[in-house]
């Protein structure tokens, strides 16, 4: 696997997607001096401020620190432990792509036990992996190995959003889905 953006001195432009995420997170979290939600102009200014002051690496670090699944679990360490049953530092590239894919999905698509969501999530993960190959981070062989790896979720994770249209019947967590 090729080293990517690795050296500490290396800084890239923030990137519009990362800036949008940071602006959205911090903008909706902040309140103005009177305690009201920020105006649209302040959101735009915050986005410009991020593009001026934070590098892409800093924005990505911030996004990972804010990553959440459900209302109770925040931060990529807790998320990867709860959702995948592994430490963040031990995740494979396929697992990182899976987290990124889940992070992007609307709520109704996140629960892999609902309908065809598991296949949908796999499709999104695979698309992310192909993006990595296009960015020359993965070789063709590494991509193929990552595409073959199964989607395995921690069996104890029970914070999935309810399936659309389903009535809440039980507090019992569903069986952990595994797609091979």
């Amino acid at each position: 696997m090729k080293p990517l953006l690795g050296a500490p001195h290396f800084e890239t432009l923030g990137g519009s997607r990362l800036i949008g995420r940071a602006e959205s997170y911090w903008g909706f979290k902040s309140r103005d001096l009177e305690g009201n939600p920020l105006r649209r102009s302040a959101h735009v200014a915050l986005g410009i401020w991020f593009s001026r002051h934070w590098s892409a690496e800093q924005l990505a670090t911030d996004a990972l620190a804010q990553l959440s699944v459900g209302p109770r679990i925040e931060g990529v360490h807790d998320v990867s432990r709860a959702l995948l049953g592994q430490e963040w530092a031990d995740l494979s590239v396929a697992d990182v792509a899976l987290l990124a894919a889940l992070h992007d999905l609307p709520h109704r698509r996140r629960n892999p036990t609902c309908g065809d969501n598991l296949e949908y999530i796999r499709g999104r993960r695979d698309w992310r992996l192909r993006e990595l190959e296009r960015a020359c981070v993965l070789s063709q062989r590494e991509l193929e190995a990552a595409l073959r790896s199964p989607l395995v979720f921690a069996p104890t994770f029970s914070d999935w959003p309810p399936c659309p249209g389903a009535k809440p019947t039980s507090e019992e967590p569903g069986e952990a889905p595994v797609a091979r």
Binding site: L4, L5, G6, T12, G15, R17, L18, A56, E57, A60, T61, A63, L64, W88, A89, L91, V93, V96, A97, L99, A100, R128, E131, L132, A135, V137
Partner: peptide, 10 residues
């Protein structure tokens, strides 16, 4: 892993 994430986001 952060760099993988970053590469997917850019």
């Amino acid at each position: 892993r952060r760099d993988w994430w970053l590469a997917m986001e850019l």
